[in-house]
């Protein structure tokens, strides 16, 4: 891949006896949104902070925009934007002053109001950080990560602890940044978030990357296919359902039927035709696509969040 903006090679972090990151290798392409998905303690933050030049690497290397992070930390820091997993900002400064102060740290004058408008915090420009809600704090954190017009933005669990509404709000914001061609590296332990936002996802567990691909390709790893579930008004011939094109498995309990299908587009019309011919009415049909949760379960034998 020639368009890689970040190259991570055999990156390792050892704390005494404990290996937090155990030799990970991957590339992030120019302009893509790259997700690192994994449970708590997997080593996501440690990996990211080594890429940002915040943590020393025990071994391995990170090349960002052609520069070695280990050798040219300050140059790298000046072209990246960072949102840390747990960080707060100065009290006693208004948001506007805060953004300007951070601009100064990059030796740049910034249009603070413009940045705050982008993250929908314009009307809070005169407020202080302690007056913000969780979601607003995260949006401020993103605004601050953008003060230097970075080539790469690192977001460490930006939506953890937010309510669904605030989370969606933040997804929209990340989408806007992505559209501008900024490369985004994001960690999360929400598979839905990874699916929605990321072009490619590295699944991390126990300090190692256990899978890396596009969300679609990853989903193929969960080979069970989709689950289709519907209610019927009278008994139906289950064996007949099993024989339908696209249907891999079928069973019936009470008045509920469960089907497994790798190709729902083929199975669904056949099922409706079959039911009509048998004089059975189908109600409450639901289809469950496989999720990254299933992929993680398949790969590790554990659930992502426990």
């Amino acid at each position: 891949m020639t368009d890689a903006i970040i190259k991570v090679t055999d990156l390792k972090k050892v704390y005494g006896e404990f290996t937090a990151v155990d030799g990970v290798t991957f590339e992030v392409r120019q302009g893509e949104t790259f997700g690192i998905l994994g449970p708590n303690g997997a080593g996501k933050t440690t990996t990211m902070e080594m890429m940002e030049g915040l943590k020393m690497m025990s071994s391995g290397s990170v090349i960002l925009d052609g520069k070695s992070v280990a050798k040219h930390v300050r140059e790298v820091k000046s072209i990246i934007g960072v949102q840390l997993q747990a960080s707060s900002f100065f009290d006693y400064l208004s948001l506007k002053e805060l953004v300007e102060t951070f601009g100064a740290l990059y030796g740049q004058k910034v249009d603070a109001m413009e940045l705050l408008r982008e993250v929908q915090l314009e009307e809070k420009a005169k407020s202080q950080v302690k007056e913000l809600s969780g979601g607003q704090k995260q949006r401020l954190s993103i605004a601050v990560a953008l003060v230097n017009k970075p080539k790469v933005v690192f977001l460490d669990e930006p939506t953890t602890g937010l309510d669904p509404q605030a989370r969606r709000n933040l997804w929209d914001l990340i989408g806007i940044i992505k559209k501008r061609g900024v490369t985004i590296v994001i960690t999360t332990h929400y598979m839905e978030e990874a699916e929605v936002l990321c072009d490619r996802i590295a699944i991390m567990d126990h300090a190692k990357i256990i899978a890396l691909d596009t969300p679609l390709n990853l989903l193929k790893l969960a080979d069970g296919g989709a689950t289709i579930e519907f209610h019927i008004n009278k008994p139906i011939d289950v064996a007949g359902l099993k024989g339908l094109p696209g249907v891999d498995d079928a069973k019936s309990e009470d008045h509920v039927v469960f089907l497994k299908s790798k190709v729902p587009a083929l199975a669904l019309p056949a099922v409706f035709t079959f039911a009509q011919q048998a004089g059975v009415t189908i109600q409450n049909l639901q289809m469950q696509q496989p999720t990254l949760e299933d992929v993680f379960l398949k790969l590790t034998g554990r659930r992502l969040r426990e």
Binding site: L54, K77, L84, S87, S88, F90, L105, Y106
Partner: peptide
């Protein structure tokens, strides 16, 4: 304690 120093270190300052 609040991680503000760490955040500052993420800048080229």
């Amino acid at each position: 304690e609040k991680g503000i120093l760490k955040r500052l270190l993420a800048t080229p300052m």
